[in-house]
Simulated assay, not measured.
Amino acid sequence: MKNLVLVLVSLLLTSCAALEQNYKNTCASYDWEAMGSRDALAGESMQSSVLSQCMQHGIPATRTAYDQGYARGLMQFCTYEYGIYWGREGKDYENTCTPSVANNFLAGYSKGKMEYQRLQVAKAQVVAIQRASGQSCTFDSDCEIKIECKMSSSAPYSRQCAGNGKTCNFDSDCTLPGSCSFNTCTNR
Results as ranks from 00 to 15, higher is better:
residue 48 S to V: 11
residue 45 S to K: 02
residue 25 N to E: 10
residue 146 K to V: 11
residue 31 D to H: 11
residue 93 Y to T: 03
residue 170 F to Y: 08
residue 95 N to K: 04
residue 63 R to C: 15
residue 71 A to W: 02
residue 30 Y to F: 07
residue 179 S to V: 03
residue 36 G to N: 03
residue 20 E to G: 12
residue 79 T to N: 11
residue 105 F to S: 09
residue 187 N to Y: 08
residue 7 V to G: 05
residue 116 Y to M: 06
residue 141 S to M: 06
residue 64 T to P: 00
residue 188 R to Q: 10
residue 17 A to E: 10
residue 123 K to I: 04
residue 67 D to E: 14
residue 82 Y to L: 01
residue 30 Y to N: 15
residue 122 A to P: 05
residue 146 K to C: 07
residue 163 G to R: 06
residue 141 S to L: 03
residue 136 S to M: 03
residue 63 R to G: 14
residue 10 S to K: 02
residue 122 A to R: 02
residue 67 D to C: 05
residue 148 E to G: 00
residue 128 A to E: 06
residue 96 T to N: 01
residue 175 T to H: 04
residue 34 A to K: 15
residue 149 C to A: 06
residue 184 T to L: 00
residue 58 G to L: 05
residue 92 D to T: 06
residue 130 Q to N: 05
residue 24 K to F: 06
residue 137 C to F: 07
residue 116 Y to I: 10
residue 169 N to Y: 14
residue 68 Q to P: 03
residue 150 K to Q: 08
residue 37 S to V: 08
residue 1 M to G: 12
residue 99 P to V: 11
residue 22 N to S: 11
residue 111 K to Y: 09
residue 105 F to D: 09
residue 25 N to W: 08
residue 166 K to H: 09
residue 115 E to H: 07
residue 1 M to R: 13
residue 177 P to F: 14
residue 144 E to W: 15
residue 114 M to Q: 10
residue 8 L to A: 07
residue 74 L to F: 11
residue 101 V to I: 15
residue 91 K to M: 04
residue 24 K to D: 00
residue 2 K to V: 01
residue 178 G to S: 02
residue 21 Q to I: 05
residue 72 R to E: 01
residue 46 M to E: 13
residue 130 Q to P: 02
residue 39 D to L: 12
residue 70 Y to G: 01
residue 139 F to D: 14
residue 155 A to M: 10
residue 164 N to C: 09
residue 81 E to A: 01
residue 5 V to N: 08
residue 182 F to Y: 13
residue 126 V to F: 10
residue 175 T to G: 01
residue 21 Q to V: 07
residue 51 L to V: 02
residue 55 M to R: 14
residue 91 K to E: 01
residue 100 S to L: 10
residue 176 L to S: 06
residue 31 D to E: 01
residue 111 K to N: 00
residue 54 C to Q: 06
residue 5 V to Y: 02
residue 109 Y to R: 12
residue 28 A to E: 05
residue 75 M to N: 15
residue 52 S to A: 13
residue 161 C to P: 00
residue 7 V to D: 13
residue 178 G to W: 07
residue 79 T to C: 05
residue 4 L to C: 09
residue 149 C to F: 05
residue 62 T to S: 14
residue 187 N to Q: 11
residue 43 G to Q: 02
residue 155 A to P: 05
